[in-house]
């Protein structure tokens, strides 16, 4: 990452997303702010229910509108324009063209009754001026770019005729066919085998290099984060609890949760073989019954009186090193 940064392509400020439920409004994402720069990969990590997927879907405005409430201060600034409250018509212009998304389940996100080519064509028809022949050429080109063998043949096939890894590559081709500035990848490799995951990660790295796309990579796999991300946001129960460069997060975690999460991954090598793993006791609190103080208090080894009384603020400058803890760790090697 360069010291002299260009302008951020996506600026998220105070993003707060609530859902109307039978038990009242529940806030799934609470005051999340970050910047995304061209050509960088930002990792968003956390366990199930921490709000990482809701964050990405809020940016894309893909949540059911009638059940979703965005906090009044929420801003999702893309090229200066706040998309958090933009019209659906405006969002249709932005989605797929400027900001694109890859989902976890390539089978359920592709339409089974249309060919791969038709689905690639849909975005091109909507966002470009190309004629039918030009669009078909472009679709084949995109399939070749994501390294699908025999793209001229595959373009006329249906999703069920492709393997899981190929479907995910088609999803990437669809997401990239209009050369978006921002690519949001929500667990893009979670359902795939490691050898296929390696292909997809390498592909995303190549594309970032060529098109200088900004990538927001949402994952629970810390190994993937360590290998491909530049900066990392760690989320817990709807809050950002720590952010920093990938080296800072892995080598000098400051939040007890980040530290515990890193410690609980099985390590390679004989030294750790058959040893008990350090664990985080308990489970993530329900969003309906969040404690008054720090949301991690019940599982934290360093809990003190202050943690119960007041929730810590997120200290540190946006885009730099941030931590939400009254008693942050000194950041020794993990």
């Amino acid at each position: 990452m360069s010291a002299t940064r260009t302008k951020a392509v996506l600026e998220v400020r105070h993003l707060t997303t609530g859902f109307k439920t039978d038990r009242g409004v529940v806030t799934a994402v609470d005051d999340v702010s970050f910047d995304l720069y061209p050509g960088e990969t930002l990792g968003v990590v956390g366990e199930s229910g921490c709000g990482k997927t809701v964050t990405s879907k809020s940016i894309m405005r893909l949540l059911p509108e009638h059940l979703t409430i965005y906090g009044p201060a929420s801003e999702v600034r893309f090229e200066g324009e706040n998309l958090a409250f933009a019209s659906e018509e405006r969002m249709r212009r932005v989605r797929g063209d400027k900001v694109a998304m890859i989902f976890q389940e390539p089978m359920t996100s592709l339409n089974p009754v249309f060919t791969v080519g038709w689905q690639l064509d849909e975005a091109l028809r909507y966002h470009t001026d190309l004629d039918a022949r030009g669009r078909r050429q472009r679709a084949i080109e995109m399939l070749r770019l994501v390294e699908i063998p025999e793209p001229e043949r595959r373009v006329d096939e249906y999703p069920h005729q492709l393997s899981g890894g190929m479907r995910q590559r088609v999803m990437i081709a669809m997401a990239l066919c209009c050369e978006p500035d921002v690519l949001i990848a929500d667990e893009p490799t979670t359902a795939l085998d490691v050898t296929i995951q390696a292909q997809i990660l390498q592909l995303m790295a190549n594309l970032k290099e060529r098109l200088s796309t900004a990538i927001m990579l949402i994952t629970h796999d810390l190994g993937v984060v360590a290998q491909v991300c530049d900066r990392v946001l760690v989320m817990y129960a709807g809050r950002v609890i720590e952010s920093g460069t990938v080296a800072e997060i892995f080598h000098a975690p400051r939040h007890p949760y980040t530290r515990a999460l890193l410690d609980s991954i099985p390590k390679s090598g004989a030294r750790a073989h058959k040893k008990r793993l350090p664990t985080i006791p308990g489970i993530v609190p329900s969003l309906f019954e969040l404690p008054a103080g720090c949301r991690f208090q019940d599982r934290c080894a360093y809990k003190e009186r202050r943690c119960v009384d007041a929730e810590p603020g997120l200290e540190g400058a946006l885009g730099g090193r941030q931590v939400r803890c009254h008693f942050p760790l000194d950041g020794g090697a993990a």
């Binding site: 490691v194 050898t195 995951q197 990660l201 190994g223 360590a226 990938v246 080598h251 390590k267």
Partner: peptide, 12 residues
């Protein structure tokens, strides 16, 4: 290949 495709938990 399986070993090599497994991402290592260390950005360094």
């Amino acid at each position: 290949a399986l070993l090599g495709a497994n991402p290592i938990n260390d950005p360094a």
